[in-house]
């Protein structure tokens, strides 16, 4: 592929084509992107209103909390870790916003920062427990999840309270009547991810996930990378809690729980390997989007919501089997 006889002029051989650029952004998420588009086409066919700006924004708003949670979880899963604290962080952020609503754009910004801080703190605790104290990630994050759920209950005993109006209206709105604000939040997260991918930390996440020992022997500070991944993940959970609150407009100390398993499903559906080292944030976001879109499609097809879980699970199995097949075909070449 690369002309090795002319080592002094390598750049000419490496003109980055648009296709490779896209491939790098998508990072193995091509499969799930394809599924999503196909499903959306079907949705558009059975539900003509699906392509209106309003419906798109609606779907986006529904999707974003799960997408952000899955994006955060991806950091940890790439590191070959588990993180159950996602449910706890989202619950704490949600009840905090419901108990202490801060009005106006300034208040919203402050609320968002608070959520990020809550997530970062929980993430740091996870990171210290898993990275430095070397506890098993399931055990450690199970503990932090239970603690966080407890804290959420202390802050707000029963569902209630009101999230500030500015957050509820503006974060679910559309810019110029077209672009959903929640979509911009996801886009911003993706942008940050692309930048992180181009740091030593970003590369190290993949290295540690693939082979911890080899990574350490290559000079990577495995503990710090692992802790860093948990902190990043926590911040994204915080953001997910923020966006979820904008959606529900009220507080619920258990609001994070339903997202926990769906977030894992979204990560797996996106093709990020639970064995670490393969996948990416974009793929997980698309995985989350597909799960939510599937709900809509089933609803539009008149299938009772009781069956949603069965469909989601089946799609997950199919996607994992299918991407495994594709990977194997790729290896044979």
């Amino acid at each position: 592929m690369i002309d090795t006889t002319a080592p002094l002029a390598p750049s000419a051989a490496r003109q980055v084509s648009a296709a490779t650029l896209l491939r790098r952004v998508v990072q193995g998420g091509g499969m799930i992107l394809f599924i999503y588009l196909a499903l959306y086409a079907y949705y558009g066919a059975i539900e003509p209103r699906a392509l209106r700006a309003h419906s798109i924004a609606d779907l986006m708003n529904n999707t974003v909390p799960l997408a952000l949670a899955a994006a955060g979880l991806t950091f940890v899963v790439l590191n070959r870790g588990f993180d159950l604290s996602v449910a706890g962080v989202i619950s704490i952020c949600n009840v905090t916003l419901a108990v202490a609503p801060l009005e106006g754009p300034g208040g919203a910004a402050l609320s968002a920062l608070m959520c990020l801080a809550i997530g970062a703190t929980v993430g740091l605790v996870n990171g210290l427990l898993v990275g430095y104290a070397r506890l098993q990630s399931i055990a450690a994050t199970l503990a932090t999840m239970i603690i966080c759920q407890g804290i959420a209950l202390v802050i707000l005993r029963a569902p209630g309270g009101f999230v500030s109006e500015w957050i509820v209206y503006e974060m679910t709105d559309r810019l110029w009547g077209v672009i959903p604000v929640s979509g911009l939040v996801v886009a911003a997260v993706l942008l940050v991810w692309i930048l992180i991918r181009r740091t030593d930390f970003g590369v190290s996440i993949y290295a540690v996930g693939a082979d911890e020992q080899a990574a350490a022997m290559s000079g990577i500070n495995v503990r710090r990378v692992r802790a860093g991944a948990y902190v990043c993940a926590g911040m994204l959970y915080g953001l997910a809690g923020f966006m979820l609150s904008a959606q529900t407009a009220t507080g619920n100390p258990n609001s994070g729980a339903p997202l926990l398993l769906l977030a894992f499903a979204a990560v797996a559906l996106g093709g990020t390997s639970l064995a670490g080292g393969r996948g990416g944030v974009f793929a997980s976001i698309m995985g989350a989007a597909t799960l939510m879109l599937l709900q809509k499609v089933l609803f539009s097809s008149g299938i009772s919501s009781f069956y949603t879980g069965m469909f989601q699970g089946s799609v997950l199995i199919l996607a994992v089997v299918f991407s495994g097949l594709i990977a194997r075909i790729g290896e044979r070449k």
Partner: peptide
Amino acid sequence: LSLVPNLSVAQNLLLPRLAKSTLGLVSRR
């Protein structure tokens, strides 16, 4: 052998500090 299997040959050779562009971001090229 202490090579990380899912990174490229070049990335492995440069670990843990990869080559940066002027912006301070890892430059693939």
